[in-house]
Design a protein around this nucleic acid. Structure first.
Lengths: 230, 230
DNA sequence: TTATCACTGTTTGTATACAATGAACGAAAG
DNA sequence: CTTTCGTTCATTGTATACAAACAGTGATAA
């Protein structure tokens, strides 16, 4: 696993919480490598928007409620467009891939709810692969990088994805609706269905956002908070 | 000027044409600095999509006609959304900035056509600042990075922006229409006006795309072409 | 002739040393 | 007591040396 992937995962899994200061040396010691590859990783994460480089050091970016809202707006716009384009350009093999991803999704959900041998992580991955297949079917190569940038942020809050059976079923139904619209080449229906699906996901995240905000206060070094304390 | 800015400018100005191989040592010697900052610059350019890293070396990305078409589709989507949001969220000071940018645009065009003391470069910059002011008025902080990624590619072809008087006037009118719609908070009109404006710009670029494609054949090293020659 | 293999040179990947910079701390002066 | 200045230390920025990887080349064998 590259330094980039490691740090990204650590951030997304909450190991490095928002506002935490990431010094190069600290990460280098942690990964047992030199600072050089660390710097590259940090630069990349910064251009992706996951970290913010201050004058001194790099910090994990803190996303406010407004940030999440705006990011979801963009995701809705982009994935809605992808769905509409997929409805135009989809081939039979595209439909096959989307259907496969969705079948796997259904199975994973069943397994998760019944036996518990499938984890939420697995479900998120499979969900992701369905969305990917839609993007692929849109035949716009350039849209992918934009969406991946916008998709990653909510994952920071994945620990709050305590999906219950209803939510999971609802999500599966949404996928099926989207798939059907793309199959029938109904562009507007595909776009709207994707819109609703993503906005529903946003609502789930927003429910927990204040809990999240609380959890990460005081992560930045005390020196900084002392100033505020006056 | 940082290495990143230098290389980016060089690419956008056609000094490093598409498919050209950019070895780190070459750039380091050219800029009289070590490879370390060069590597960072290249990594950043790669995540922005201006260069492509092969197994051996980094090359300036070659954009096909399809690429340009798809990139413009995304730009239309994003800037159209920005215009619509601006129509909702614009403040008086936003309107002021947009109006100022547009006044400067008008003056620059007049100067360019009459006295010639203003260059196309200047006009492009001012045009850019109008679009920026719209994005700013949209109040979505995150949209900016997406648009800047998508705006930069057509600049590679800026040498083909031989705008005539008609085109420049048309562009100015479009700006005015957009501005008026945002002022009146007519979201749909703002979006559509922006759509038309950008698609018109795309058409200008597409007219010259085959000329561009021809110009840059044979830039890659001969060793590669020899294989094809059989 | 063609395929395979080892060798060579070029180029990237990584480690490390040192320079530059900025923040924190403390001392001195108002 | 507060402000300002300079010193010190932590941290990033840059250069450079070396390791690793890969493409190209030529030799050898089928």
């Amino acid at each position: 696993m590259s330094a980039y992937e490691y740090i990204k995962q650590a951030i997304l899994h909450g190991e490095f919480p928002p506002k935490m200061r990431l010094t190069e040396e600290f990460l280098a010691k942690k990964l047992q490598i030199s600072r050089t590859p660390i710097r590259e990783a940090l630069k990349q994460l910064e251009t992706e928007g996951l970290t913010v480089s201050m004058k001194r050091g790099v910090r994990v970016r803190h996303f406010t409620e407004l940030d999440i809202r705006q990011i979801y707006d963009l995701r809705t716009l982009l994935e809605g467009y992808a769905a509409a384009q997929a409805a135009i350009h989809r081939t039979d093999s595209d439909l096959g891939e989307m259907a496969t991803a969705n079948d796997m999704y259904e199975k994973a959900i069943d397994q998760y709810l019944e036996t518990g041998e499938t984890t939420i992580e697995d479900i998120l991955k499979i969900n992701h692969s369905f969305h990917d297949s839609v993007i692929q079917a849109s035949k716009n190569q350039h849209i992918h990088s934009h969406i991946s940038k916008v998709v990653v942020v909510p994952l920071i809050f994945r620990s709050f994805y305590w999906f219950n059976a209803d939510q999971l079923r609802h999500s599966l139904d949404a996928h099926k609706t989207i798939l059907k619209a793309i199959e029938k080449q109904d562009t507007e229906r595909a776009r709207v269905a994707m819109h609703e699906h993503i906005y529903h996901g946003r609502d789930q995240v927003m429910k927990h956002i204040d809990v999240i905000d609380q959890q990460y206060t005081g992560v930045e070094e005390q020196k900084v908070s002392f100033q505020t304390e006056r």
